[in-house]
């Protein structure tokens, strides 16, 4: 299996820097149900990776392993050269304390299918919660940056609204602003448009495309093939808990080599 995709980062001359995310042989079972059967994946700095695959293929589970919302059974994941959840000390692998795990998650943003905004806080409070409370940014500075981000996602006039007063698309754009507010090294998107009415999908994808163009490192699980085609540096096709095929969108989406990929694309396009 090829590890390195043809990303912007790897196409650049003399870039031999280690990938930002390096997953090796990741296994995960829920009881007897083996959901991940050895995932290998590298994501370079600034790369936009879109993960496609049929329902139940383990895409969400893999994404959640990266920021330790799920505990994997076997293998390892490194983010920015640091192993997630464990520490190798004198040749012995030790599980990290909950506090250390929390520290590792601080620069990994996550956008959920169900938005998961904090309903008891206004939009602005949602966005500044982590910067002020976890990263120790002074309030004035955090709020100024939050307003900048709300402008970026097109919602500055909603700063003092509560999440339930917003449409689904607006909520998801706030969730994206909230994830950006922590100045993440990496953002994980788990089907960010699946809970939206069809006419609201566009505005969220538009926002995400903007982020992709700015060189943010993103791993996106989605069923939006159009987004994969336009915004992805690399498309990864998962099925049955393994990576079946990966490569540039124009290759994987147009000329898939694996029959399973072909069958999947025939169904969704």
């Amino acid at each position: 299996m090829t590890m390195t995709g043809l990303s912007r980062a790897s196409l650049a001359p003399d870039t031999v820097a280690a990938p930002l995310v390096r997953a090796r042989n990741v296994h995960k079972s829920f009881g007897a149900n083996e959901v991940l059967k050895g995932i290998d994946l590298d994501v370079g700095q600034g790369e936009v990776v879109v993960i496609l695959g049929p329902s139940g293929s383990g895409k969400s589970t893999f994404l959640r392993c990266i920021n330790q919302l799920e505990k994997m059974d076997r293998g390892s994941i490194e983010v920015a050269g640091e192993q997630i959840g464990y520490e190798l000390r004198d040749g012995r692998l030790l599980a990290l304390s909950p506090r250390a795990v929390a520290r590792q998650r601080r620069r990994i943003g996550m956008v959920f299918q169900q938005f998961n905004l904090y309903p008891h806080m206004t939009v602005l409070q949602n966005v500044v919660e982590a910067p002020i409370g976890i990263h120790g940014v002074p309030r004035a500075e955090a709020e100024a940056y939050a307003m900048e981000l709300l402008v970026k996602v097109g919602l500055p006039e909603k700063a003092h609204a509560y999440p339930r007063q917003l449409s689904g698309g607006q909520q998801q754009r706030v969730a994206i602003a909230r994830a950006l507010a922590i100045k993440p090294r990496l953002i994980l998107f788990d089907e960010p448009t699946s809970a939206l009415d069809p006419e609201l999908v566009g505005e969220v994808l538009e926002t995400m495309r903007g982020l992709a163009d700015q060189g943010l490192t993103m791993i996106v699980v989605t069923h939006e093939i159009g987004f994969a085609r336009e915004a992805a540096d690399r498309v990864v096709f998962m099925d049955g808990g393994v990576v079946v095929e990966q490569g540039r969108p124009e290759d994987v989406l147009v000329n898939p080599r694996q029959p399973r990929t072909r069958a999947f694309l025939a169904r969704v396009i």
């Binding site: 919302l69 998650r105 996550m110 959920f112 169900q114 998961n116 904090y118 919660e129 976890i134 922590i182």
Partner: peptide
Amino acid sequence: VDRGQYETADAFGMTRWRALRRIIIPQ
């Protein structure tokens, strides 16, 4: 309180106690 709220607090790197105080208990 919705499980998603616990997960979000975790994903942002909040400690247990902070998540409880800021996110879970108010809801």
